[in-house]
C-alpha cells in the first residue's frame, strides 16, 4: 500500500485527480480518525480532513518518501493541534510543539501495519504505559500537563512513555514479521 501511495503522489504531482481520489479512498478514514480522536467533534474533524487532503493536492512534494500513513498522521495531528490552539481558552495550558512533518524517520517496516494490529499492540502495554502514550498523542497536551492532571511525578511519566514506546516497537516488529 505504501509503495502505491508513492506512485499516487507522483501522479498527483502531474495533477491526476483520479490518483488523488484513490489516495483519499485509502487514507481518509485514518486522517478523519486521528482528527476525530483529538478534537471529539465531527464537523471540526471533517474540516481538518479537508484541509489535510487539499494540502496533499496543492503541495504533494511535502511528502518525499517512506511511510505515507505515518507522514499524513503527523500532518493531521499538527492541523488538529492548530485547531486546539485556536480553541484554547486557557492559554496557561501549554500545547505540545508540532511534530516535524519533513522528518523521514518513520520506519518503512511499519508501512503495512493496519489499525487493528496497532490497537492490538497497544493493548499489550500495561495501562500505566499505554495511558500517557495515548493521552500524549491524541490528547493535545504536554507530558508536563499529563503529570499535573494525573498527579504522577513527571520523571515517572517520561519513563513510562519511553518504556511503552520500546515495548510497542518490539510488539509491532513481531506483528510485521508474522
Amino acid at each position: 500500500m505504501e509503495l502505491d501511495a508513492e506512485d499516487l503522489i507522483a501522479r498527483i504531482r502531474a495533477r491526476d485527480a483520479d490518483a488523488f481520489e484513490a489516495l483519499y479512498d485509502a487514507h481518509h478514514r485514518l486522517v478523519y480518525g486521528v482528527a476525530m480522536r483529538m478534537l471529539g467533534d465531527a464537523a471540526a474533524a471533517e474540516d481538518v480532513t479537508q484541509s489535510v487532503f487539499l494540502k496533499v493536492w496543492s503541495s504533494p512534494d511535502l511528502f518525499r518518501s517512506g511511510n505515507f500513513s505515518a507522514w499524513i498522521v503527523r500532518v493531521t495531528r499538527n492541523r488538529a493541534l492548530d485547531v486546539l490552539r485556536s480553541r484554547n481558552s486557557h492559554p496557561e495550558v501549554e500545547l505540545p510543539e508540532a511534530l516535524p512533518e519533513s522528518d523521514a524517520l518513520e520506519d518503512v517496516a511499519f508501512a503495512n501495519l493496519d489499525a487493528t494490529a496497532v490497537r492490538a499492540a497497544l493493548e499489550t502495554l500495561p495501562p500505566e504505559q499505554r495511558a500517557p502514550i495515548e493521552l500524549g498523542f491524541f490528547g493535545g497536551i504536554t507530558h508536563d500537563e499529563i503529570a499535573r492532571r494525573t498527579g504522577i511525578p513527571l520523571g515517572t511519566i517520561k519513563t513510562r512513555i519511553r518504556m511503552g514506546l520500546r515495548k510497542l516497537r518490539a510488539t509491532l516488529e513481531g506483528a510485521v514479521t508474522v
Binding site: G33, E106, L122
Partner: peptide, 16 residues
C-alpha cells in the same frame, strides 16, 4: 528507534 513506534500510535485511530 522510538519515532516509528510513536508514529504508529496514530494508526490506531483509523475510523472504520
Amino acid at each position: 528507534a522510538l519515532a516509528p513506534s510513536a508514529s504508529a500510535v496514530g494508526l490506531s485511530a483509523e475510523a472504520c
